[in-house]
Measured scan of single mutants.
Amino acid sequence: MLYRITVRNADGEKLEIVVEMSEDEVRALAEELRKAGYEVRVEPIPEGEEP
């Protein structure tokens, strides 16, 4: 499935990426980023919607 991941650092800089991963993989990635001090938001992209 496609997911949009938005990551912000302490300075407020934002990075937005689209990935194709399983829900478990995305959850693990988000958890690791949060542990590293980043603010993370994950949104699933519905099938048929443009990323």
Rank of each mutant, 00 (worst) to 15 (best):
M1H: 12
M1Q: 14
M1V: 09
M1F: 09
M1A: 07
L2S: 06
L2P: 04
L2I: 09
Y3P: 01
Y3Q: 04
Y3K: 01
Y3R: 03
Y3S: 01
R4E: 02
R4T: 03
R4W: 06
R4Q: 05
R4V: 07
I5A: 00
I5L: 08
I5N: 00
T6R: 04
T6I: 08
T6S: 05
T6Y: 11
V7L: 12
V7K: 01
V7E: 00
V7M: 13
R8L: 11
R8P: 01
R8Q: 13
R8I: 10
R8N: 05
R8S: 10
R8H: 12
N9D: 05
N9L: 10
N9P: 03
N9F: 13
N9K: 15
A10S: 10
A10I: 06
A10M: 07
A10L: 13
A10T: 08
D11V: 11
D11C: 07
G12P: 01
E13V: 15
E13C: 09
E13I: 15
E13T: 11
E13H: 15
K14I: 13
K14F: 11
K14A: 09
L15G: 06
L15S: 08
L15Q: 14
L15I: 12
L15M: 09
L15T: 11
E16S: 08
E16M: 11
I17K: 03
I17D: 01
V18K: 06
V18L: 10
V18F: 11
V18Y: 11
V18Q: 05
V19G: 03
V19C: 04
V19F: 02
V19H: 01
V19N: 01
V19R: 05
V19K: 04
E20A: 09
E20M: 15
M21W: 05
M21R: 03
M21D: 01
S22M: 13
S22K: 12
S22I: 09
S22H: 08
S22C: 05
S22P: 05
S22R: 07
E23M: 10
E23A: 12
E23R: 04
E23L: 07
D24S: 14
D24N: 07
D24W: 07
D24H: 08
D24G: 09
D24E: 12
E25T: 08
V26W: 02
V26P: 00
V26G: 01
V26T: 03
R27L: 11
R27K: 09
R27P: 01
R27M: 08
A28P: 01
A28E: 05
A28M: 10
A28Y: 14
L29I: 09
A30T: 07
A30M: 06
A30V: 14
A30L: 09
E31L: 10
E31K: 07
E31M: 10
E31R: 06
E31H: 11
E32K: 15
E32C: 15
E32W: 14
L33V: 02
R34P: 00
R34C: 06
R34Q: 09
R34K: 09
R34M: 07
K35A: 07
K35Y: 04
K35E: 03
A36Y: 12
A36Q: 11
A36R: 15
A36T: 11
G37C: 02
G37A: 02
G37F: 05
G37V: 01
Y38Q: 02
E39G: 04
E39W: 07
E39R: 06
V40C: 02
V40G: 01
V40D: 00
R41C: 14
R41E: 13
V42S: 01
V42A: 02
V42K: 00
V42W: 14
V42F: 14
V42C: 04
E43S: 12
E43Q: 09
E43G: 03
E43L: 10
E43D: 10
P44M: 09
P44I: 15
P44V: 15
I45P: 03
P46F: 10
P46I: 15
P46V: 12
E47Q: 14
E47D: 12
E47M: 15
E47N: 14
G48I: 13
G48P: 10
G48Q: 15
G48K: 14
G48N: 15
G48M: 15
G48R: 15
E49D: 12
E49P: 13
E49Q: 10
E49M: 13
E49K: 13
E49T: 08
E49I: 14
E50N: 15
E50G: 10
P51I: 06
P51E: 08
